[in-house]
Design a protein around this nucleic acid. Sequence first.
DNA 1: CTAGGGTTAG
Length: 617
Amino acid sequence: MQVISSSFAFEHNLCETMPCLERCTNQKELKQIHARMLKSGLMQDSYAMKKFLSFCISSSTSSYAQNVFDAFDRPDTFLWNLMIRGFSSSHEPERSILLYHRMLCCSAPHNEYTFPFLLKACSNLSAFEETKQIHAQITKFGYGNDVYAVNSLINSYAVTGNFKLAHLLFERIPKPDAVSWNSVIKGYTKAGKMDIALTLFRKMPEKKNAVSWTTMISGYVQAGMNKEALQLFHEMQNSDVEPDNVSLANALSACAQLGALEQGKWIHSYVNKRRIRIDSVLCCVLIDMYAKCGEMEEALGVFKNMKKKSVQVWTALISGYAYHGLGREAIGKFMEMQKMGVKPNVITFTAALTACSYAGLVEEGKSLFYSMERDYNLKPTIEHYGCMVDLLGRAGLLDEAKCIIQKMPLKPNTVIWGALLKACQIHKNIELGEEIGEILIKMDPNHGGRYVHKAKIHAMGKKWDKAAETRRLMKEKGVAKVPGCSTISLEGTTHEFLAGDRSHVEIERIQYKWRTVRKKLEEHGYVPELEDMLLLVDDEEREAIVHQHSEKLAITYGLIKTKPGTTLRIMKNLRVCKDCHRVTKLISKIYKRDIIMRDRTRFHHFRDGKCSCGDYW
DNA sequence: CTAGGGTTAG
């Protein structure tokens, strides 16, 4: 091999080759660049080598990187570290650990950089045993006082769920820095111990940085404490730390969960005003926030403005269409994404299948499901089987749904059985439903909803004794049903209503208004639909309860508080019952209101007496 | 060199 000695030629080659690497999109091009580098002697240059290897690893051609590296005679510590770092955040972090093992075998020297990279791999693998072993190595080789090594250890223990070990190490640091604090806090948030995390966060003597704030905010989001997350985000804005794209993405997740459109919009405009770069993650959460707040048009706008759309961005939009029952649009985007050369992943399939299921597109769903393994080499997961059972079950194809469960290579979970049970309820298959109800209670004895569903299916079959027995069992176990709760946002404030709750300050006015509304409904032929209220024997009692359902209170309040024609936005924690669905359709017609209701799983857009779900939910 | 981030079935 001819080595070019002139430094000019060398620089020249470097400048020519590197941009090619940046643009390189496939293995063939990569090989060409490799060949060129070999020929021009660039492989001797540590900068070029580093660039080349990093690229190979990051573009999931890591086996190629491994081969190139293996061809090296005596890699120096820098190169070993580079490889360990590269693999630590690849899709195969275990390769970092294997490399370190090889290092030990050939007694290649490590340095203080080696262990933080190695521990990054452990964190990404959530590997506790390996973390402990590396901990021993760190102590043995005398890096026990290196703040980088110790901080990495704290972090690895934190993400593997060992907050006690993380805290122990933290307390032994003479002068913990912000990274030490943030890592130990992470340990508590990861374990769901938000109170301890907050105490530590408040005690931080170091200046809190954006990571500190975001660690807490994301901890709250993961714990489902979205209100607390937004409260802290608010506090962050009053501090001297500017929120960056990661903090904003977390705050937006909280908005999405809460359906807090106004706050979400505010964050979006903040992003635009501050010219914060919308990367793939931020784009995903913006789409998700608008979709979960009922604004598909806005979601689509964000999507269209994004230049380089990752598979996750496409998936976020497809999921959005799914919640809104827009199956055709979802499939359209699924096709379009492939035309653009983006490959769907397993989550994309879950989203697309959900869309088919909610929209009743049975044939489309089936063909998507069968294409997964055949055309995309993706093995269906339990989620996909869940979608299929739901798709077939809803459509009344109970035998086919059962067949899927019998044939699938995975153990059915409560979601699978739950989907089939729901199908039994819709299509009144009492016998099968009772059987599944029993299975679900066995799998989930402390879940109140399981008893309610089983009692319901007994009642549907007029087996009152069995229904009463199930209810008695539920009482005995002391498991309660989650109470229905609806919220309506009016001018940025959220009003909450619980089923049968009389604590609202304007409850008298609401009750009065409801009586008028009800009269109007009756003039339009409304008769209370009590099918979902099978647990009570007395019709009057059933009626009284159904009329205090939280969504009715929220809508009534909305009618009082807004100008005619204003769209009402309601959110509910459970699925909407048949009677409420019917009533809402009628109200949308009689009062000429658009009503957008987000239920536990999906959206209902009511307009002029019809609902976007086509009564298929 | 170490710390914070995404889309998913009911």
